[in-house]
Design a protein around this nucleic acid. Structure first.
Lengths: 327, 327
DNA sequence: GTGAAAGCGCTAACAC
DNA sequence: GTGTTAGCGCTTTCAC
């Protein structure tokens, strides 16, 4: 076992409690004493034992971050930002992947609960009810979902969707199709509502399909419907789906953006790398990660008292090569 | 504070130590007693407090996973696998991103050291010396680097590189160029050695350039040299670089694979999504993540006794659209 | 401003 | 097979 508070105390000739205070409440310690303790501590390579600290304070200084699939390009920027920001606030983050399995998600939350001060749930697959129940024991922040009583970070995908519809309408497209996402997706529902509204406002036709798998394969499958329809403008559930439709359309001799325009969502690397480069709705994923951690620590500091704050983050539209005027 | 061992003991009418044993050494407890304890525990929602457990046992059941950039598509599959496998072994993983900064890396290791039983370092940016020094305090496993005294997970990129050279030579290319990676990259050095050897064996010319940034930008920059050379076959440091050269070549009117063939490394989503789809050397990243955790826990179980095991993982070549016969 | 002492929840000898 | 007891390293009253 490494060097403890006791040895530092002995070396400095003060009591353990003084050493403890120099680290956890420095202002309660005489300036000169503090210096001496600190000097001895760094010299001896002392580092507070978090487990011991957690045991007495009830604060682990750890948080959990649960996502459905780390390998989905939507998540890494969020994880990266969350983890960096947590570190600034002196928290470490457990990252866990549920593999899209609601049961795994629930078990994970259970085991994590005892080891963290709070949990960030990103695009959960659990029912609202289950989340609400577990949110009683521990501060939770949910990203991309609205759960009663819990803090949430929402991305205003409705706005981005409206921009996409306007962009397409402005280009001259008269018939659009929206490729919806998974049935349980809050994001997908928001997109639908916003698209209907914007299409009405712009006077263009809108057809909605789905559910589609949120993957390239989902897009590939959707290509059949798109080519069968008279639509010349497509808004896909996410970049992966967009890339998939473009490929599927290509197989049918339909070229993007010459024959059909396609808009994605998320602004992932995948979309940037794709040829043609994707026009896409930007999601503020790093900001979402930071904000989620911020709200979570706010709740933690409030001692778990219900603080159901909501943060709504802006989305936008970046126009690249996958959209253009209709043929 | 939630329910503790003490309350379970009271409810069951046994001593705390019996409850403790039920969880940490079940075989030492009478069958029938164990059942009763377990029943009471689940009913009351008891979950062992890891902090307390860590304090007495000296085992946190946590490990750290340090990467240079979570958002680099090479890492997520590795993180995902590592985290899933650790969970199977009842460990949780802290994921931390150093943002390619060696100092951040060192600080991170320091703070993590007290909270984990071991650390996996993936493609570290620290010097071998620094790593060796810190590896003295705690079990370490290093991925993609060989550090004296530490367990390592290496990917046999030499083999993959040889396959790539043979593939290109077999297609009829007579002059190849290898786009090296960052100066401190072990992987890059292995590639160079293997490429020289294979080129000699196949009787084709080989030019080596670099260092190049391991990004799309690095590839974009390298395109000038490639187009200036007489080479018709390119092996890039990674998929991102490959995608970058292809784009840069395109800007100069050189088409892939019509005029020049390009091979990437890593087999990331990016390469699969790129047009043309990348021919690339496959890296067993999920296996690397799992193996790293396995070696780490092996070292942890050995009580930190030096166990410098080496795992060398296979690489391969997947041929897609970015390579073909020379014009 | 500092020391003394109790105790966080659990495990690990050691008795019985 | 189970109870007893003594801590693990730290924070936190409470005195002084």
């Amino acid at each position: 076992m490494a060097v403890t508070i006791r040895e530092v105390a002995r070396a400095t000739g003060v009591h353990v409690s003084t050493v403890s205070r120099t680290f956890s409440a420095p202002h309660l310690v005489n300036n000169e004493t503090r210096e001496r303790v600190l000097a001895a501590a760094t010299e001896m390579g002392y580092r507070p034992n978090q487990a011991a600290r957690a045991l007495t304070t009830g604060r682990t200084h750890n948080i959990g971050l649960i996502v459905s699939d780390i390998a989905n390009p939507f998540f890494p920027p969020l994880i990266k930002a969350a983890q960096a920001y947590a570190r600034e606030r002196e928290y470490h983050v457990f990252v866990a992947d549920t593999d899209e399995d609601p049961q795994a998600e629930e078990e994970l939350i259970q085991t994590l609960t005892k080891q963290v001060d709070g949990v960030v749930l990103v695009s959960p697959r659990l029912t609202n009810q289950a989340i609400e129940r577990m949110g009683l024991e521990l501060p939770f922040v949910v990203v991309n979902r609205r759960v009663r009583g819990l803090s949430a970070v929402l991305m205003d995908i409705g706005h981005g969707t409206a921009l996409a519809v306007e962009h397409l309408a402005g280009l001259g497209h008269r018939r659009l199709v929206l490729l919806g996402g998974p049935r349980a997706s809050w994001t997908s529902e928001q997109m639908k509502k916003a698209a209907v509204e914007a299409a009405g406002r712009c006077g263009v036709g809108l057809e909605i399909t789905g559910p589609n798998a949120p993957t390239e394969g989902g897009g590939l499958d959707a290509a059949a419907e798109v080519s069968a329809s008279a639509a010349t403008g497509v808004i896909a559930y996410n970049d992966l789906v967009a890339i998939g439709v473009i490929e599927g359309l290509g197989e049918r001799g339909i070229e993007v953006p010459r024959d059909v325009s396609v808009v994605g969502v998320d602004d992932t690397v995948a979309g940037r790398l794709n040829r043609p480069k994707l026009t896409t709705i930007t999601m503020p994923t790093p900001a979402a990660g930071r904000t989620a951690v911020d709200l979570l620590l706010q709740a933690v500091d409030a001692g778990g008292g219900r603080t159901a704050a909501q943060a709504i983050l802006e989305t936008g539209l970046v126009v690249r090569e996958s959209t253009g005027p209709p043929a």
